[in-house]
Design a protein around this nucleic acid. Structure first.
Lengths: 214, 214
DNA sequence: CCTGCAATACTCGTCTACGAGTACTCGTGT
DNA sequence: ACACGAGTACTCGTAGACGAGTATTGCAGG
């Protein structure tokens, strides 16, 4: 079980990793992360930046290095990472890499309530999804291939992401084909279920599949 | 861009889909969802159940059917789904299926800050991850195969989930192999970066890859 | 020289998700 | 006949995430 972190927001991870290079003030972190495309790696809400930095300081992972003013700009607080912060960063990454965390994609949530729609409509929607995905994948693949200077290691997240999206696209393609050519077993059941809103009682009883043990 | 829902919590989706069968009170919904293993499909926090049901009612997706007491039990409020609720459910599923939403897995966040650890340590961690994943996948595959009564349609989420996890495992296997046999280009760079904490400046400048356009 | 727009560097109030607690009740063992 | 532990059915306080706003400055263009 992943232990509860003092600062749980992934933005905190990005901050730690960014200030670990050198002391800087929050806005500079934001600028750096933005420039490095960190937004693609975690889904960052800039509104939380100052809260998160504050929390990191409260828990001793960051310390105030001083505050500098530049020209007539408002004063900016410069933070540096502490030893505890460096340890927290390493420990956090270790956990993220080691423990396969179950963060259920929203698509899967959607699949689990597919009964709310009729199979034929679903086929159409899946076709749309597939189109979008294929376009995005092709675009990102091209962008990644065009990047010949930066060594792969600094772009592995992107590589991983592409691999997963390709797999998802492949799965969707297969599922869609099965709906379209009618080979998906139980298609009639699905249609019936959608019309009536009632699961056939013999299935309902069975649907209580036990969750496979950890 | 996915439009903001009145009730955004995915638990709300599960609730709508559950009460759509027949009116019931919150605790019964929870029991049903639990029995159906909904916890595997979305990551449900039971503490939010009453809040979410309340919100769904506030926005007209659920209506109070009445309140019943059974024996000397405390009074329970029974809810039914409204027409607006049925529409919201369908619309929500439609969106989830059609729009490939970018919900970045935590693993990917971890990969994006891999520089905090040394390659050799990462190799060890990945081996651990892979072991856990393979065990879980094998278990779930067996469980799914053992399920011969319930038609596949009622278990597609699980099928999808397995497909993705297999793809992730395969990717990790490949990446791990590249680290282990030293064929990953830039391994030395990685090691240097980790020791010094400094990205080589010529790379740092390049790392500002522009995010591929939407 | 002055206007306006974009970027800078935050602040604040709202909202809500969540965990931990609570009170009651039924069945079972003794 | 009653003590108990395992459900049942919620309630509530709080931490913290987020969005929207704000005030200042530099600079480009007329």
């Amino acid at each position: 079980m992943a232990k509860r972190r003092k600062v749980g927001n992934l933005l905190g991870l990005a901050v730690l990793s960014t200030v670990s290079a050198r002391p800087m003030h929050p806005y500079e972190m934001a600028a750096l992360m933005r420039a490095r495309g960190k937004e693609r790696d975690m889904d960052i809400k800039w509104g939380s930046l100052y809260t998160v930095v504050g929390n990191l300081e409260k828990h001793g992972f960051l310390a105030v290095e001083g505050s500098a003013r530049e020209g007539a700009r408002p004063e900016r607080t410069v933070y540096r990472i502490t030893d505890a912060g460096t340890r927290e960063l390493a420990d956090w990454v270790r956990e993220l890499i080691t423990v396969p965390e179950r963060d259920v994609p929203r698509f899967e949530a959607g699949l689990s309530v597919l009964g709310a729609l009729a199979p034929d409509e679903v086929a159409g929607l899946l076709r749309r999804r597939l189109g979008t995905m294929e376009r995005q994948i092709a675009g990102d693949e091209a962008a990644l291939a065009a990047e010949t200077e930066v060594p792969r290691i600094f772009l592995i997240e992107e590589e991983y992401d592409l691999a997963i999206r390709r797999a998802e696209a492949a799965w969707v393609r297969g599922f869609l084909a099965e709906i379209e050519d009618g080979t998906l077993p139980g298609l009639d059941l699905w249609r019936a279920f959608h019309r009536t809103g009632e699961m056939p009682p013999e299935i309902a009883a069975l649907a209580e599949r036990g969750a496979p043990g950890e």
